[in-house]
């Protein structure tokens, strides 16, 4: 009985310790290195980041779309500047980079024509990767 108890304690301690130290892994389509650098293997922080992004991006993205459709370049530039860093919180650093490029072109040319293609690419990449972000969020919550 004593031996069993000892084995049980060692087993549970090892198990607990492994759970605490287990390295978080992310979907390969997301920037794992970046996610590791910001969440430092804290699963709760990571889940929080993904949750905040999924909650907030639809409204912000709709605002951005509206500015694009209305041709309001100044407001569009403001919105994309504000939205840009949020993609990195879910490992979409490539989307952040595309947003940054659009912002820079807005600043330099001041014309919508020059960002049309880039914006389409930005939007398509985002739409393609949102399901990955959702999957990852569900996985972080298990």
């Amino acid at each position: 009985m004593l031996l069993f108890s000892l084995h049980y304690r060692i087993f549970t301690q090892i198990g607990h310790s492994n759970m605490e130290n287990a390295q978080l892994t992310y979907d390969e389509r997301l920037d794992s290195a970046f996610l590791e650098s910001i969440y430092e293997n804290d699963k709760e922080d990571a889940a929080f980041g993904f949750e905040q992004f999924l909650k907030s991006y639809p409204a912000h993205f709709s605002e951005l779309e509206l500015c694009f459709e209305n041709g309001d370049l100044m407001l569009f530039r403001q919105k994309i500047h504000k939205l840009k860093p949020t993609f990195s919180f879910v490992g979409l650093t490539n989307v952040t980079a595309k947003a940054e490029m659009i912002e820079r072109i807005c600043d330099s040319t001041g014309e919508f024509d020059s960002i049309n293609e880039l914006y389409k690419d930005f939007k398509n990449t985002l739409i393609e990767l949102i399901p990955v972000v959702k999957e990852e969020y569900n996985r972080l919550n298990t």
Partner: peptide, 12 residues
């Protein structure tokens, strides 16, 4: 901060 995610994290 005008970035909502940044505000959320600092609050957390």
């Amino acid at each position: 901060d005008d970035e909502p995610m940044a505000r959320s994290f600092i609050q957390r």
